[in-house]
């Protein structure tokens, strides 16, 4: 053996090791704003404490992040804010478990963690020039919000936009202020619905489950892409309804919300067959889902 190998070996290690980066280290974020969307859904607006990171941070609508409260742990949510909103990310979460309870307790000025963006995001190229039919149920709207903001910011690149938003009850409808703003945009139709029994006396929207309202609205499949996100049971029937209306599976897009820990394809938790939701998803077409084992 020659000295060459020693030099190669040592130089490789000394050059390589310090360059490695802790992939689990989150960015520190300051809580800038807190909005209550519903009695149990809250939106946090977070600013990057490192301005340089904030300025260079970019993501594709549909990508997600790991949000953390130091001491409670990490949780996966979609990045719910507009990609044009530089230096910030927003997340909307429903009060469910340990981390969401801890997130509920943070106050303006507090520090939380964020790492991302992870995942594939929506296929923007295949959406351009198309009519878009959004159908979001409950907190599922959070995964659509970044894309809706993007499409409205690039309004001329997309055709007619339908926003169908459903929730269990009137009180559970998220993004009420955003909806008003979105509906004011040209060529945008906003339809809101609540589950039967969830309406109030002065409710002027639809009453019925999201799939039923999709059926009623009967969007034309030609030139339209349907994008749907919500609880598993809603997705299941929304996909069936869209199929019945004649949407080809390649033009129906949804997201999978599997449990995740690392977000990086390593912790082995979010796979559906050979597909890792954190790497290959979370955005899938119905055609892609059709090819996967029923394990989600």
């Amino acid at each position: 053996m020659s000295e060459r190998y020693l030099i190669e070996y040592l130089s490789r290690d000394s050059e390589r090791l310090p360059a490695m980066r802790n992939i689990y280290r989150p960015h520190l974020m300051t809580v800038e704003d807190i909005r209550d969307e519903t009695p149990d859904v809250r939106t946090l607006r977070l600013a990057f404490q490192d301005q340089a990171v904030g300025e260079s941070f970019a993501f594709v609508p549909g990508q997600f992040g790991e949000y953390s409260v130091f001491g409670a742990g990490e949780c996966v949510f979609a990045i719910a804010s507009s990609p044009a909103d530089r230096g910030h990310v927003e997340c909307s979460f429903k009060l469910m478990g340990k981390v969401t309870h801890a997130l509920r307790d943070v106050e303006i000025g507090d520090t939380v963690g964020f790492r991302g963006p992870y995942g594939n995001g929506f296929p923007l190229e295949s959406l351009r020039g198309q009519n878009l039919f959004f159908a979001g149920g409950g907190i599922g709207m959070a995964a659509l919000r970044a894309l809706i903001e993007y499409c409205l910011a690039h309004r001329q690149e997309f055709g007619h936009i339908t926003l169908l938003n459903g929730a269990r009850s009137v009180a559970d409808l998220v993004y009420k202020e955003d909806m008003v703003r979105w509906a004011e945009q040209p060529d945008v139709q906003l339809v809101r619905t609540v589950d039967p029994g969830g309406e109030t006396a002065d409710w002027d929207g639809e009453v019925g489950f999201v799939p039923a309202i999709i059926e009623k609205l009967a969007p034309q499949p030609e030139g339209t892409v349907a994008i749907t996100c919500g609880p598993p049971v809603m997705i299941k029937f929304a996909l069936l309804t869209l199929e019945r209306l004649g949407f080809p599976q390649e033009r129906v897009i949804t997201t999978l919300e599997n449990k995740m820990k690392c977000g990086l394809g390593k912790c082995g938790r979010c796979n559906v067959g050979p597909v890792y939701v954190c790497k290959d998803g979370p955005v899938f077409t119905a055609a892609q889902l059709q090819a996967l084992p029923r394990d989600f």
Partner: peptide, 10 residues
């Protein structure tokens, strides 16, 4: 086998 969980302890 390499599956792991990530948890905080504070």
């Amino acid at each position: 086998c390499h599956c792991f969980d990530i948890v905080d302890d504070s």
